[in-house]
């Protein structure tokens, strides 16, 4: 047995349908908010963005940066692990032969399309050389065209600092043991 509650037609009482009391109730709410917000900004939730900023969560990663060797060169050896693991295909690396045989391979160009990036951090996990990090806590600045978000190696290195990790980075001289 299904019980049906009839709701058609008589939703309002006579007093309600005169709108008088209900309007006064509504007015009291809006006026209360108006006065509270005018006098104390008590309920105001809007932030005046450039002046006021909401703090980011602690685990927010932010933009990528390319780490540097002691001599300021890029640590990246263009192994393409990040480009391979990237689910958004936003990393483009052009590998080249380095003059220094101890480094051998390095990225001639390393660009990240920040529009495509999903900021998942998999590239950081994949990197064997501690060459890429996502810990700047910044987000991309607005741009007036798409190319502005295509960030080159130089810009990524500007955000980066030196890394002291050994694996995959500096190696001793040939034959020195």
């Amino acid at each position: 047995m299904i019980r049906v509650r009839e709701k058609y037609g008589d939703r309002m009482t006579a007093l309600e349908s005169s709108y008088l009391t209900e309007t006064l109730k509504g007015l009291s709410i809006t006026l209360r908010h108006f006065l509270e917000n005018t006098l104390t900004r008590k309920n105001t939730v809007t932030l005046n963005y450039p002046e006021e900023k909401k703090p980011y969560p602690e685990r927010f990663r932010g933009l990528h940066r390319l780490m540097k060797r002691d001599d300021g060169q890029v640590r990246c050896v263009a192994c393409m692990c990040c480009a391979t693991v990237c689910p958004a295909h936003c990393i483009k690396i052009e590998a080249g032969e380095h003059d220094d045989h101890r480094i051998e391979k390095f990225p001639i160009e390393f660009s990240i399309d920040w529009l495509r990036c999903v900021y998942c951090g998999l590239c950081v996990d994949a990197c064997p050389c501690d060459a890429i990090r996502m810990d700047t806590g910044e987000h991309p600045k607005p741009q007036i065209d798409r190319n502005g978000f295509l960030t080159t190696k130089i810009d990524l290195m500007k955000l980066g600092g030196p890394s002291v990790a050994v694996q995959g980075g500096v190696r001793p001289d040939n034959g020195e043991g």
Partner: peptide, 13 residues
């Protein structure tokens, strides 16, 4: 401005 105050916003500024 009034609507902003009523709606817990800041309004045009």
């Amino acid at each position: 401005r009034q609507s902003a105050m009523i709606q817990d916003r800041v309004g045009p500024n």
